[in-house]
Design a protein around this nucleic acid. Structure first.
Length: 229
DNA sequence: ATCCCGAGGG
DNA sequence: CCCTCTGGAT
């Protein structure tokens, strides 16, 4: 089989995205929040945990510590107790309080709305910053998480799909140069939803996936047992 | 045993 | 590049 050309791949990406749009017409952020600060905290907590689990602890966390200053001044053990079931609780609590301290002292208690300022906060990397930019401020951002990495790899939406440890920044670059900025946030949501509902890490449901007719991964595993990979 | 809307440090 | 931090669900 001939290798897919760049033009063909980009055309396929748009076709497949149209299907994704019909599958998930109105995607929204799965983390519960009411303010940029709450979204920033929730996203920082979401590392290596499901968003559903994050939503079970944030109501108490936000009612106990409504502002950055409250969180900064909190007793570390109180923060740890609340977020404990999410894992990485010691690191997350330290990052949250350090972030809250810098927000209070250097950003006047307001969540900054630029990539550079956000990632200057402790515990805030590019993925978290893109979530906040896109979902709290309406500024185009393309968060690359575990789902986006896996799904874009299986769909061959990126050229380094064979890499065992692909670079999230290069994924972000390769995908965002194909789609218009106003779609980036929803595109990320839709890829995540596909990953959560069908394109599972262990046993993807290619048989029920509307993208299977064009998906290279589905083609490669078709007829075989979709055991692993 | 594997995975979940990662980030920082060596 | 590697490693560590962590708990709950499947």
């Amino acid at each position: 089989m001939p290798r897919e050309s760049r033009g063909a791949r980009i055309g396929r990406m748009h076709d497949e995205y149209a299907i994704l749009c019909s599958m998930f017409p109105a995607p929204r952020c799965a983390l519960d929040f009411t303010t940029p600060f709450e979204l920033l905290v929730a996203t920082m907590l979401s590392a290596q945990t499901t968003d559903r689990r994050v939503n079970t602890v944030t109501p108490l966390l936000f009612s106990r510590f409504p502002s950055a200053q409250d969180l900064w001044r909190a007793k570390p053990e109180d923060v740890e107790d609340i977020i404990h079931p999410l894992g990485f609780y010691h690191t997350k609590a330290r990052n949250l309080q350090a972030m809250a301290g810098i927000m209070t002292t250097r950003f006047h208690g307001v969540v900054p709305d630029s990539m550079a300022d956000l990632t200057s906060l402790p515990g805030v990397g590019r993925k978290t910053a893109n979530v906040v930019l896109g979902n709290a401020f309406g500024i185009p951002g393309f968060p690359v998480d575990t789902h986006v990495t896996r799904v874009t790899g299986r769909l061959r939406w990126r050229t380094d799909w064979k890499s065992a440890s692909p670079d999230p920044v290069s994924i972000e670059k390769e995908i965002t140069e194909v789609f218009p900025p106003e779609e980036w946030t929803n595109l990320s949501h839709r890829l995540i939803l596909l990953g959560r509902e069908l394109c599972h890490a262990r046993t993807p449901s290619c048989g029920e996936c509307p993208l299977a007719s064009t998906c290279p991964y589905a083609a490669a595993t078709r007829g075989k047992i979709p055991a692993r990979a």
